[in-house]
Every structure is written in C-alpha cells, then in structure tokens.
Simulated scan of single mutants.
Amino acid sequence: MKIAYSPCPNDTFVFHALTHGLIKGTPPFDVTYADIDVTNHLAIDGDPKKHDVMKISFAALPWVLEDYALLSCGGALGRGCGPLVLTANDENNPNDLQGKRVAVPSERSTAYLLFRLWTAQQVEGNIGDVVVMPFHDIMPAVQNGDVDAGLVIHEARFTYQNYGLKKLVDLGDWWEKDTGYAIPLGAIIARRSMDREALAGWIKQSVDYAWEHPEASREYVRTHAQEMDEEVAQNHIDLYVNEFTKELGEEGYGAVEAFLGRAAKEGLVPDDQLHRLRF
C-alpha cells in the first residue's frame, strides 16, 4: 500500500507502528516522505492511483473529495498553535492591511484560509497583493519593507521578535474565540475504492501503539526530524498528536465543516463536494 506523509515528528510518531509491521493484519507499506505542500499538489493534480493514503492540508480537501475520502483518524487539529500575521510597526488595527502587500507561505494551506476568513470579517475593504514566498523568507521580507505584513507558521511563533516584528493577530486565537473549535490542520485521506474502515482501524491501533510505546518510534522520529532538537520534536508531538488524531468525533468534524463551510461561503474553496466530508 502506498502512503505519503511528512517527515515531521507528529507524522512519523503516528505512522511508525503502521508502516513497520507492528500492527497485525496490515499489508506492507511503501512510504513517500513529502512536505504537505507537495502532497497537496499530488492529491489535487496528480494521479490518484499512485498514492493510496496521503496526509494533506484540510484547506486542500475540497478539491480532492471526488477521488479521496477523509479518514476519521491520523490527522491533526490543534489549539494554541495558530498562524500569526506580523508587521514591522506597532499598529494593531486590522484595517491597516487595506491595500497592503502581504506575504504568505502557500495559498493552499489552513494558514492562508484562516487569514482570508479573518480579513473578510475584520478588514473593511480589500487587502492588496498576496505574495507567495518560501516560509523562511517571509520575516526578513517584512523586516526589510519588501512587504507590509507576513503570514507565518510553526517556529516563527517563537522567533519573530528577533526580527523586530510585531504581532498584528494570532489567527488561531481568533478562530478559537470566534468558533469555539480547534484549528483543522492536516487531514488523512484515502482512495475511495479502498477498505477505509479497515485502514482507519489500523491507524487507530498505530496511534495507540505510539502512545503506549513512545520509545519504539524515537529513533525513527529522530532520523526524519533532521536538525530538530529532540525536546523540540517531543513538543511538536505533544502539540499535534491529541484526541483528534485518534478520532475526529463530532467536535472534530464540526471544526472541519465550520472551517471549510466558511471558506466556501467566501468563494475560497469549491463547495460541490463538501457534502462528502463524512463519507
């Protein structure tokens, strides 16, 4: 079975047992390690026969639901981990973004959709140009004045002050207060022709195994985490592997439906397949 997920600690932690023959009755797995932007592209534009199971952004889900189904486990929803909008000045009025140039790391990401939903609610009028650039270039671009604001994720939450930048908004904090839901981040999808019930059962067993035997996956996680400090890797796992990873449940599905439903209402994602979110 062909599966694609990122080399990030949360994914390697979750899928270690599944892809290392530790779950009884599973087939052999052929693993592709790829950044989520790559798997988004593979799911939307690639041949669905080449990958049976993939980790993608929830923001990409509306484009793939005809060929792939959302699994109820293995993914990531989180609290306290939202993207930030940064500027180089002390202004904290969202309307300051009117007509401004904003850098984002991707236009097919949860972070981008959250940004657009926030601006639709909070900014009177339109922002200016949206510029897609590599994640690591965004904070220097804001610092240098090449763009007026930047949308950042991950470790930039903890390092933006080093660039002299200011936080205009924490989009995760806004989303949680506005909806009460966690942020839908990464989804696990499988080809609709597969036995998705069996697959979901195996993934849930893999999550349980990871929690019960955290030492078993330690070397696997470390190998793929590249230069990431071991403590940082563990914090990454603790943040993104939670009850929603084991089972989305009504709260998890509610978060996904609220997120994509709002995005569809704003014309940011197609809505013709959203009725298939739960089957």
Rank of each mutant, 00 (worst) to 15 (best):
N144L: 11
Q273A: 15
M139S: 11
L117F: 01
K2F: 05
R157Y: 03
H236D: 06
K177G: 07
S193M: 05
I138M: 09
L168F: 01
M228L: 14
T110V: 01
P7N: 14
D229H: 00
N10K: 15
L117K: 01
A141C: 09
P184A: 09
Y253T: 04
A187H: 00
D52E: 13
Q205N: 13
G150D: 11
E266P: 00
P48G: 08
G125A: 06
E215Y: 01
W63P: 02
P184N: 12
A43I: 06
E155T: 09
R101E: 13
D272G: 04
I138G: 03
A103R: 02
A149Y: 03
E266C: 09
L268S: 08
L268P: 02
G267T: 00
Q226Y: 05
I203H: 13
L113C: 10
I203P: 14
L70W: 12
G99L: 11
D11A: 14
N93R: 15
L171R: 02
V14I: 15
A263C: 02
L168G: 01
D238C: 01
M194C: 07
M54L: 15
Q122S: 11
A190D: 04
G74H: 11
L268I: 03
R262S: 07
W202H: 12
Q205D: 15
L239E: 05
K204S: 07
Y5R: 05
S57K: 09
S6W: 07
G75Y: 05
K177D: 10
R196V: 09
K50T: 11
N92T: 12
L199Q: 10
A198N: 10
V38N: 06
G186R: 06
A111W: 00
I153N: 04
V169D: 02
M228Q: 03
H224S: 00
S6C: 06
G128A: 08
I237K: 00
H136V: 11
V169Y: 01
V131M: 10
V53W: 01
Q273G: 01
E176V: 09
A263L: 01
T87M: 13
R108H: 08
V269A: 05
V38G: 00
V132S: 14
K49H: 10
C8G: 06
H213S: 11
M194V: 14
V169K: 03
P134Y: 09
L171M: 03
E212Q: 14
V31K: 08
R191Y: 10
Q121A: 15
E227R: 13
L168T: 03
G78R: 12
C73F: 05
S206V: 14
F244G: 12
Q121Y: 04
N126Y: 09
D35I: 06
T87Y: 06
E251S: 12
K24C: 05
P94H: 13
N235W: 01
V132Q: 12
R218E: 15
T110Q: 02
M139N: 02
K177C: 07
L113R: 03
P9L: 00
V38K: 14
G254S: 10
F115V: 05
G261C: 07
L274K: 12
N144C: 13
G25S: 11
R116Y: 01
K167S: 14
V102H: 03
P83G: 04
D170N: 14
I138N: 04
L61E: 03
N242P: 11
V102G: 02
P27H: 10
I237A: 00
Y68A: 05
Q161F: 02
R116T: 00
K166D: 07
T110R: 00
T245S: 08
F58A: 10
M1R: 11
P94D: 04
T119N: 08
A76Y: 00
I3C: 05
G145R: 04
